[in-house]
Simulated assay, not measured.
Amino acid sequence: MSWLQQRQDVLAENVANADTPRYAARDLESLDLSKYVNEGRKIRPVRTDVSHMTLDSAGGAPRIVSTSSFETTPSGNSVALEEEMMKVAQTQMDYQLASGLYARSVSVLKTALGRA
């Protein structure tokens, strides 16, 4: 969730600088959760349906990287607002999913402890 919050900050900075000359759009480097799955255990999730989520997010300290865009304004700005808004929406959905799963797991633990 921390990575998603930091990504929203970087994307908001991109949108805020959409008119700044020679500003290059940035994003966080994707984190690789598979290294956490493989540490200590040899358990791998199996995708049995196309609607299942995959582990294509990241782990570790996020690194800000420049993104490449097909659009560049005459002033040299590479921020495409449509692309940034799509990234913001996807990040928001990912955050809502993570917080929903966390809330549900807390609820299950409370039920198991008899504190529901």
Rank of each mutant, 00 (worst) to 15 (best):
M1S: 10
M1V: 08
M1E: 05
M1A: 12
S2L: 07
S2A: 13
W3H: 01
W3F: 09
L4H: 04
L4W: 04
L4Y: 05
Q5D: 08
Q6R: 09
Q6C: 00
Q6E: 05
Q8M: 04
V10S: 04
V10Y: 03
V10N: 02
V10C: 07
L11F: 01
L11W: 05
A12I: 02
A12L: 11
E13W: 07
N14W: 00
N14T: 00
N14D: 05
V15R: 04
A16G: 00
A18L: 02
D19M: 00
D19T: 05
P21K: 07
P21C: 02
P21T: 03
R22L: 06
R22W: 15
R22T: 08
R22N: 09
R22A: 13
Y23T: 05
A24S: 08
A25R: 03
A25V: 00
S30Y: 05
L31K: 13
L31A: 15
L31V: 08
L31N: 13
S34E: 01
S34V: 04
S34K: 12
S34D: 12
K35D: 03
K35Q: 14
Y36S: 11
V37C: 09
E39N: 13
E39L: 10
G40K: 08
K42G: 14
I43Y: 14
R44L: 15
R47S: 10
T48N: 14
D49Q: 06
D49R: 15
V50N: 13
V50S: 09
V50W: 08
S51K: 11
M53C: 06
L55K: 09
L55S: 09
D56L: 05
S57E: 11
G59A: 11
G60W: 08
A61P: 06
A61C: 07
R63N: 10
I64S: 04
I64H: 01
I64N: 00
V65S: 01
T67C: 04
T67Q: 02
T67G: 10
S68P: 02
S68F: 08
S69I: 03
S69M: 11
F70D: 14
T72A: 06
T73D: 04
P74M: 07
P74W: 10
P74K: 08
S75A: 07
S75I: 01
S75R: 13
G76Q: 01
N77W: 14
S78D: 03
S78E: 00
V79A: 00
A80I: 03
L81V: 12
E82T: 08
M85Y: 06
M85S: 07
M86E: 12
V88Q: 11
A89S: 09
Q90P: 11
T91H: 06
Q92V: 12
Q92M: 14
Q92I: 04
M93T: 14
M93H: 15
M93S: 08
Y95Q: 14
Q96A: 14
A98N: 03
S99W: 10
G100E: 13
L101V: 11
L101M: 15
Y102P: 01
A103H: 13
R104D: 11
R104T: 14
R104E: 06
R104F: 10
R104C: 03
S105V: 14
S105L: 14
S105E: 14
S105T: 12
S105G: 10
V106L: 15
S107H: 03
S107N: 12
V108A: 12
V108N: 11
L109D: 08
T111G: 13
A112W: 05
A112N: 09
A112Q: 04
L113S: 12
L113E: 07
L113R: 15
G114Q: 02
G114Y: 05
G114P: 06
R115I: 10
A116E: 02
